[in-house]
Design a protein around this nucleic acid. Structure first.
Lengths: 194, 194
DNA sequence: CCTCTTAGTGCACGAGTGTTCACAATCTGT
DNA sequence: ACAGATTGTGAACACTCGTGCACTAAGAGG
């Protein structure tokens, strides 16, 4: 009856079985399931940081439209290449496991903060208050997360074995780009009030 | 060791125990846990629909800023009043249970579609393509969902027994309003290309 | 009142779970 | 090659879990 999807329907014994090892040997490597989860979070976060680095290098672009297109491309490339990591975090984000949930939430906040200081360098945002920069960064991050969710869902419910239908991905990516471009369009109109 | 949070760490036996009934009596009411979950989804969706109705009645407002403020107020009021329903859906949305996950995802899409046809009546959006309206509605819905997530997380990790710290809620609400106002600011700038 | 449906009971089974403990193998550095 | 750490083993414990089955209490309609 079990055989569930996410991390919290994953038992110590199943992990041991998959590792080709007797259950008790698990304790030689982790004190508890929570610590395994935290290790996975760390590994996945490393993936995210690599993505951010790549995006930053491709940044400082001339036209904003190109920057958005490029960022989304990097995003979907990473999701496709590290599907397991993203799926794990997307699930654990709303998981029943409080430890994992909070770890991921705080990591997400940190991520948004870094993005905020990143975009603070852009000339258009020169005289925005820090609070407003945080708000903008959070909006970007939330939109990205929603996009990731959409990709993961489309690829899991799709017919394909591992990959998602190309049309679905194209549709999702196109919408994400539109949304980000729309937000960018609002930036010059905003009067930042601290 | 268990005692997890969400629906998928909820066993048939625990439900029966909480109902003051022997486990096998569960089957007199539901064929499986999945059906219980679907019933809960239906109930929660009814709550959402009530919220939409209320928002629609308060809609057709003169100034857009007032509309946003009012919508967010209605949102947080409903979340506070039906915390259980929102928490259930927020969790099941990324749950390990595929049946619930898909039920909620499709309900969310339907929700976004309804919002799209709703805002299509606004004069400012008169000559937007339907695809662009969907994209805008999805952006609004995703932002709302992110806000709900933030409220739920703040209220669960907070010190309070049931309620969240008022400052945290104020901060979240203020940010959500800013984000929605920012998006609204972009609307006149968008040139809709079908 | 008697029948029929609905809701609840008790028991039992097989399977899966986390964790403990003493023990064996294997790998490492000197 | 030998001592010490690291990693793996096997059996056992005390659970929880979903589910099948025959049986009973309770209420509804004729």
């Amino acid at each position: 009856m079990d055989g569930g999807y996410g991390f919290d329907s994953l038992s110590l014994r199943r992990v041991a079985r998959a590792a080709g090892v007797v259950p008790t040997a698990f304790y030689r490597h982790f004190d508890s399931m929570d610590e395994l989860g935290l290790a996975l979070v760390e590994e996945s976060v490393a993936t995210l940081r690599a993505m951010l680095r790549e995006a930053r290098e491709g940044g400082a672009a001339a036209d904003p439209s190109g920057l958005i297109r490029r960022s989304v491309e990097i995003l979907v490339a990473h999701v496709r290449e590290h599907r397991r990591h993203f799926a794990f975090m997307a699930h654990a984000r709303a998981s029943g496991n409080a430890v994992l949930r909070h770890a991921i939430r705080s990591e997400t906040k940190l991520f948004a903060s870094e993005l905020a200081t990143d975009i603070a360098r852009l000339p258009i945002l020169r005289d925005w208050s820090t609070a407003d920069l945080q708000m903008l960064a959070a909006l970007f991050v939330d939109t990205m997360i929603a996009t990731i969710d959409a990709i993961l869902e489309a690829s899991s419910s799709g017919a394909g074995p591992e990959g998602l239908s190309p049309e679905a991905e194209t549709r999702i990516v196109a919408q994400a780009e539109k949304q980000l471009r729309l937000i960018a369009l609002a930036i010059p109109q905003w009067r930042s009030s601290p």
